[in-house]
Simulated scan of single mutants.
Amino acid sequence: MAATIYPPTSPEVAHKRRDLAPDVQAAFEAFGRQVFADGALDTKTKQLIAVAIAHVTQCPYCIEGHTKAAQRAGATAQELMEAVWVAAEMRAGGAYAHAAIMIASLSEEPLR
């Protein structure tokens, strides 16, 4: 990851996280292994979904990690970019859909 405001990942951070809550860390890792295992969806598809969601949640660690995992699972650069475009459309679609709340509020008495 390029130099950013985010601290770099490191073995020391991973060890500290595990030391502070070992049982939770172990459960989280087991959960992740199960979630990304082949099932009704294959691992590559799950990783493409993860890349898309990582862009919506704007997690740089997730973007980097799941991009690499998606590539290891066989995803191409073109598939990854399409996943990001799907995420962008969905995020924009959410703002568009929520305009209904603003439109409904137009008829209400303004707060003073």
Rank of each mutant, 00 (worst) to 15 (best):
A2L: 13
A2F: 10
A3Q: 15
T4I: 09
Y6K: 03
P7R: 13
P7E: 12
T9Q: 14
S10Y: 06
P11R: 04
P11W: 02
A14G: 08
A14W: 03
K16M: 10
K16T: 13
K16C: 02
K16Y: 08
K16W: 07
K16L: 15
R17E: 07
R17C: 01
R17K: 09
R17L: 12
L20D: 12
A21W: 05
P22E: 11
P22T: 07
V24H: 09
V24Q: 11
F28I: 08
F28A: 10
E29A: 11
E29S: 09
A30I: 03
R33A: 11
R33T: 08
V35N: 05
V35S: 15
V35C: 15
F36S: 00
D38A: 08
D38I: 09
G39T: 07
G39K: 04
G39V: 06
L41F: 13
L41P: 06
D42T: 02
T43V: 09
T45V: 13
T45Q: 15
Q47V: 02
L48S: 00
A50I: 04
A50P: 01
A52T: 04
A54Q: 03
A54S: 15
H55K: 02
T57S: 05
Q58I: 00
Q58K: 09
Q58R: 14
C62I: 00
C62D: 02
I63P: 05
I63D: 03
G65A: 15
T67S: 11
A69E: 08
A69D: 09
A70W: 01
Q71G: 01
A75K: 03
A75D: 00
A77F: 02
A77K: 15
Q78K: 12
E79C: 02
E79A: 02
E79P: 05
E82N: 07
A83T: 09
V84S: 03
W85Y: 11
A87K: 05
A87C: 12
A88C: 06
A88F: 07
E89F: 11
M90P: 01
M90S: 08
R91N: 12
G93C: 11
H98L: 14
S105C: 07
E108H: 14
E108C: 11
P110D: 06
P110N: 00
